[in-house]
Measured scan of single mutants.
Amino acid sequence: NLYFQGLKYMVPGARVTRGLDWKWRDQDGSPQGEGTVTGELHNGWIDVTWDAGGSNSYRMGAEGKFDLKLAP
């Protein structure tokens, strides 16, 4: 699974964008943008601060869902 392989790169400072299971509307800005991981992966959740200004926790394994992917 590509998403599980990418988890080791989901570290503080990593750049991310919305992924396969995104369901959080425009939390990442409008139009959709990139963000920066600000915390360690914990119980399948990870913290992100978006360039647009907001921050929140997103699923990276929790509930079998992956809200994020590494930015290109």
Rank of each mutant, 00 (worst) to 15 (best):
K65V: 04
D28P: 07
T36R: 07
P31D: 09
G61N: 03
F4Y: 14
V37K: 00
R59K: 01
G13K: 03
D26T: 08
S55P: 02
K65P: 01
G53H: 03
W50C: 00
P12L: 13
G53V: 02
E40V: 14
L7W: 10
G44K: 01
Y58D: 02
G53S: 03
G29Q: 06
K23M: 11
N43T: 06
L20E: 11
H42K: 13
G19D: 05
S57H: 11
H42T: 13
W22D: 05
D28F: 04
L41H: 07
Y58C: 05
K69D: 11
Y58L: 03
A62W: 12
S57V: 10
Y9F: 11
G13A: 03
D26V: 05
G64E: 07
H42Q: 13
Q5D: 15
R15H: 04
A52C: 15
D21Y: 04
G54C: 15
G54D: 08
E63G: 12
K69E: 13
A14Y: 03
P72A: 12
T49L: 11
L68D: 00
G6K: 12
L2M: 14
K23R: 09
L70M: 10
G61Q: 02
T36F: 04
L20W: 12
L68P: 01
G33M: 09
T38Q: 08
P31W: 07
G54W: 09
K8H: 12
L70N: 04
R25D: 14
R25K: 14
A14C: 15
F4E: 15
V16F: 02
P12W: 09
T17A: 11
P12C: 15
W50E: 00
V16S: 00
D67A: 01
F66G: 00
R15K: 09
L70K: 05
G19Y: 05
R15A: 02
D51S: 03
Q5E: 15
T49G: 05
R59V: 01
N1V: 10
V48F: 01
R25P: 09
K8L: 11
F4Q: 14
T49V: 12
A14W: 03
A14V: 10
W50N: 00
G64F: 07
L20T: 13
V16R: 00
S30V: 14
G54Y: 10
L68G: 00
G19P: 03
L20H: 13
G64H: 06
P12F: 10
R18V: 07
G6P: 08
M60Y: 11
S30T: 14
H42F: 11
W50S: 00
S57F: 08
K69A: 14
E63Q: 12
D47M: 14
G61R: 03
G33P: 05
R15W: 06
L41V: 09
G44S: 01
G6Y: 15
E63R: 06
G35A: 01
M10P: 04
L2K: 15
K65F: 08
L68F: 02
G35I: 02
F66S: 03
V16I: 05
V48E: 00
N56P: 03
F4N: 13
P72N: 14
Q32L: 10
G53Y: 04
N56I: 04
T17C: 15
Y58E: 03
K8W: 10
L2N: 15
N43P: 03
A52S: 11
W24Y: 11
R59G: 03
D28A: 05
L2F: 11
D51G: 00
I46Y: 02
N1L: 11
D47K: 14
K69G: 07
N43W: 09
Q27V: 06
W50G: 00
V16P: 01
A14S: 09
M60V: 08
V48K: 00
Q5Y: 11
Y9G: 08
L41G: 06
K8V: 12
H42C: 15
G53N: 03
V16Y: 02
Q5R: 09
P72D: 12
D28T: 05
G33Y: 05
P31K: 07
K23C: 15
K23L: 07
G64D: 09
Y58N: 02
G64S: 08
G39H: 07
L70E: 04
D67Q: 02
D26M: 08
K23Q: 13
L7E: 08
D26N: 11
P72M: 11
E63V: 04
R59I: 02
A52Y: 12
E34K: 13
N56M: 07
G54F: 10
G6S: 14
W45A: 01
R18L: 09
I46W: 03
V11D: 04
V37Y: 01
L70V: 08
T49A: 11
G64C: 15
Q27C: 08
V37E: 01
D28C: 07
L7K: 08
Y9C: 15
F4P: 15
T49E: 12
E34Y: 14
G33E: 06
R59C: 02
L7S: 10
K8G: 12
M60D: 01
N43Y: 10
V11L: 10
D28E: 06
A62S: 07
E40H: 14
G53I: 01
E40Q: 13
E34D: 08
G6H: 15
R18Y: 07
D51P: 00
L7Q: 09
V37S: 01
R59W: 03
N1W: 07
T38R: 08
E63I: 03
G53R: 02
P12E: 12
L41Q: 06
A71G: 07
D51L: 04
L20F: 12
G29S: 06
G19E: 04
R25H: 14
K65Y: 07
T17M: 13
Q32W: 11
E34F: 14
V48W: 02
Q32F: 13
S57W: 10
K69F: 13
D26I: 06
D28R: 03
G54L: 10
S30H: 12
W22G: 04
E63M: 09
L68V: 07
K23W: 07
L2I: 15
G44Y: 02
V16L: 00
P31S: 08
E63P: 00
G19C: 10
G6L: 15
S30G: 15
G53A: 04
S30D: 14
E40S: 12
N43L: 13
D51R: 02
H42E: 11
W50T: 01
S57R: 14
D21T: 03
Q27H: 07
W24C: 07
D21H: 11
L20N: 13
V37T: 04
A62G: 06
Q5L: 10
G44A: 02
A52I: 07
G61K: 00
D47G: 12
R59Q: 02
W22Y: 07
R15T: 02
R18I: 08
A14N: 05
L68C: 03
S57I: 10
T38A: 08
G39P: 01
Y58Q: 04
R25F: 14
N1F: 08
T49C: 15
S55C: 15
D21W: 04
G19K: 06
R15Q: 01
G39A: 09
Y3S: 15
A14G: 04
W22L: 06
G64M: 09
P31Q: 08
K69M: 14
E40W: 14
R25C: 15
A52Q: 10
A52V: 08
K23T: 10
S55W: 11
G13T: 03
Q5S: 12
S55M: 13
D67C: 03
E40C: 15
L70A: 07
R15M: 02
T49N: 09
D67R: 00
S55A: 09
K69Q: 14
A62D: 05
M60G: 02
T36S: 08
N56E: 08
G54I: 10
G64Q: 07
Y58T: 02
Q32P: 14
M10T: 03
K8P: 10
D26A: 07
W24V: 06
F4T: 11
L68A: 02
N56V: 04
D67E: 09
